[in-house]
């Protein structure tokens, strides 16, 4: 049964008090800093600025770390002993998450739970509380509205904040998890006026829709071979900046690492589909041997394959990959050009 949204009001001071309490309890509190979601040590760090652009990276690394051990092994003579990893299921509260980030875990959930359930991901995301914040600005790289989201989307948030004035926020309780989290702080909450905060949401300027994702899906199906891919392949330098700053890119590598003669661990590390050796076989054969094929894979995976498999676009429209690309490849522009 779906949860019925509740509308409350909270003052900025009380919200900061709440944050102070979260830190005092020993939970991890994350908030957007300048480059990344930073762990808040002191509430004075908190900016809660709805007009800030997305940080350079998302908080993906807190559910899906850039490098994590998945098992330990000990070797002795001819025997091997395996030791399980204890996943740190510490509570993490994300304050002021961008609507282009909030849905990322929901999108990733499909992948990490179809067929085999990834316990590492699941344990971590279970302990996540996401407090979203409406977004009031965008730049030329933002395109959330083209992938079915919007700067005011509550999708993926457990609680959602809408700035009403300088020192007050409307606080929407979106999920059961959010309600559970906010319950101890009910003294801070007053009843809110949904119509009033809706008016704020409606007044927000949103990025224009740049492409129709259904048309893109269809075009990609018909244009696996298209000279457009070659043009991109000539310019792209095959790094993984785009994949690693992406809130939903999830490819990984598994490697063993010895840290002594007899002991070691198996690591699950981020990997990127733009690296040439990503699909390189031991025999030397490589199905995606040139950059144009790898870029085609990136776009297809996001806008076609994932949609076919899980019914969702593997992209939140945050524009991080384009903003950070060393050679200014703009995925919005490329996908907008996925038509004849």
């Amino acid at each position: 049964m779906s949860f019925k949204m509740e509308e409350k009001i909270i003052s900025k001071d009380d919200l900061l008090k709440l944050c102070g309490d979260v830190i005092a309890k020993g939970h991890t509190l994350l908030a957007p800093g300048i480059a990344e979601y930073e762990q808040v040590k002191d509430v004075s760090q908190i900016r809660l600025d709805s007009s800030a652009l997305p940080t350079k990276t998302s908080y993906k690394s807190y559910v899906f770390p850039k490098a994590e051990p998945i098992l330990y092994y000990k070797r002795s003579k001819s025997d091997v002993q395996l030791i399980d990893v204890d996943v740190n299921g510490k509570k993490i509260v994300v304050l002021g998450a961008k609507p282009c980030d909030t849905n990322s875990i929901n999108i990733l959930k499909h992948l990490f739970n179809w067929d085999y359930e990834d316990e590492f991901f699941n344990l971590r995301q279970k302990h996540f509380v996401i407090i979203g914040l409406m977004c009031s600005s965008f730049d030329e790289y933002c395109f959330c509205t083209s992938v079915g989201s919007s700067p005011v989307s509550e999708e993926g948030s457990d609680l959602f904040l809408i700035p009403i004035n300088e020192d007050k926020f409307a606080l929407r309780i979106i999920t059961e998890k959010g309600k559970e989290f906010i319950e101890p702080y009910s003294e801070f909450l007053k009843d809110g006026d949904e119509a009033k905060s809706n008016a704020v949401l409606e007044s927000i300027k949103k990025p224009e829709v740049a492409f129709d994702s259904k048309q893109v899906h269809e075009w990609l199906g018909d244009n696996f071979e298209n000279p457009k891919w070659e043009g991109i392949g000539n310019v792209c330098l095959s790094c993984a900046q785009c994949a690693f700053v992406c809130p939903v890119c999830h490819c990984f590598d598994l490697v063993d690492e010895d840290y002594s003669y007899s002991e070691g661990r198996r690591m699950k590390n981020w990997d990127g589909c733009q690296f040439g050796h990503f699909t390189l076989h031991a025999s030397g054969h490589n199905p995606r041997d040139i950059q144009s094929k790898r870029y085609r894979q990136r776009v297809n995976h996001k806008f076609r394959y994932y949609v076919d498999k899980f019914g969702e676009i593997l992209c939140t429209g945050c524009g991080r990959c384009s903003r950070g690309c060393p050679v200014s490849i703009d995925i919005k522009e490329i996908v907008s050009n996925c038509k004849d």
Binding site: L111, F112, W114, D115, Y116, D118, H250, C251, F252, D253, L254, D271, C273, F278, T279, L280, H281, A282, P287, N300, H301, R304, Y305, Y306, D308, K309
Partner: peptide, 24 residues
């Protein structure tokens, strides 16, 4: 079909050909 694989669980993203995961 033999593609490079790591996880065998339809997650790591290297064996897919289109929306087909060779490992699954």
């Amino acid at each position: 079909l033999e593609n490079r694989m790591k996880c065998g669980l339809g997650k790591c993203g290297r064996c897919n050909i289109g929306n087909v995961y060779v490992c699954k």
